[in-house]
Design a protein around this nucleic acid. Structure first.
Length: 290
DNA sequence: GAGTAATCTAATCAAGG
DNA sequence: CCTTGATTAGATTACTC
């Protein structure tokens, strides 16, 4: 029954990348038929599919991205449409038409994942992690997701956006610590770009010398993240980033109160909840509906 | 209108058959 | 080696204040 994408493939898995999803024939069939109806499925549809297949929504999104890319179904970027191709542009209506078609299927609010509102505590953790590594690998992102209570995908997106913004603003020469929430002063931020071990050994971060494993274990046993612990059983405890993050969690909770990170609220609740997996008829209905 | 989360394309990397 | 899932940069869209 765990016919989901195979995540058991490589045991000594490099955790720098998410393990490659292997779609089953039936899953692919469904993906293809959805794609035939719309190459741009809504977030809701993607999430339905993800839930049904037992894979992350981002895997579904990536599949559609790659598919569009490789079948020439991608809408042209505005650069391309304005830049070169005036001839085929008249044949193929540009992005406006696509947008209209998409809107006809529902408001953007249903097409997009609802905007995540990051708490000051979450932002503060992300910013500190960013200073250590602006391009964290998959394992680190999962650790960060665990620590912040955010989906890994959201962590990933946050790093992408942050990097892009930083680059855009780095035109000058001053790197500003802009993203920290409206709180007055991140006193520690300026010096924080040193190595993880150094950070981890700072007294200010270490509340009480030992302990940390427990916190990590509790986090790792969260049901929505078991896919990771199953895939990467050896990932716990050995990673310095994890140690750092555990301490970060404690620090933030100390500074901003235990409710700051809301560890008891699973991230799934942030998103519009969907019901149990679809039956075959519901699938058909879904496909017809698109 | 600014800030920023989410989405997109295009190019590329890399795992699996 | 080829196919295809994952990642990245950069641009864009859309939500929230």
């Amino acid at each position: 029954m765990e016919d989901q994408a195979d995540v058991g493939g490589c045991s000594t898995a490099k955790t720098s990348r998410r393990q490659k999803t292997v779609w089953q024939a039936k899953q692919k069939e469904v993906l293809l038929s959805v794609f035939a109806k719309t190459p741009y499925p809504s977030f809701r549809t993607r999430q339905e599919l993800a839930r049904e297949f037992g894979v992350p929504e981002s895997s579904i999104r990536v599949w559609f991205q790659n598919r569009r890319n490789r079948t020439g179904m991608s809408r042209k970027t505005s650069k391309q449409t304005t830049a070169g191709s005036s001839h085929e542009a008249s044949q193929q209506p540009p992005e406006k038409l696509v947008a209209r078609v998409q809107q006809a299927r529902g408001p953007p609010s249903e097409r997009r994942r609802p905007r995540t509102r990051l708490s000051p505590a979450q932002i503060s953790m992300l910013v500190q992690a960013f200073e250590i590594s602006p391009s964290p690998d998959y394992a680190t992102r999962v650790q960060l997701a665990l620590s912040t209570g955010l989906p890994e995908d959201t962590v990933h997106i946050w790093f992408q956006n942050r990097k892009a913004r930083q680059k855009g603003r780095a035109g000058g020469s001053t790197a500003k610590g802009e993203d920290l929430p409206a709180s007055p002063g991140p006193e520690r931020a300026p010096g924080a770009s040193c190595c993880i071990e150094q950070e981890a050994s700072r007294d200010s971060l270490l509340t009480s010398g030992s302990a940390g494993g427990q916190c990590a274990e509790a986090l790792m046993s969260r049901p929505e993240l078991t896919f990771f612990t199953e895939a990467y059983p050896e990932s716990s405890n050995s990673c310095p980033v994890q140690l750092f993050l555990e301490q970060l969690v404690r620090t933030v909770e100390e500074e901003q109160g235990p409710a700051a990170l809301d560890p008891d609220v699973p991230w799934e609740q942030i998103e519009p909840t969907l019901e149990a997996p679809l039956t075959e008829e519901e699938y058909q209905a879904l496909l017809d509906d698109i």
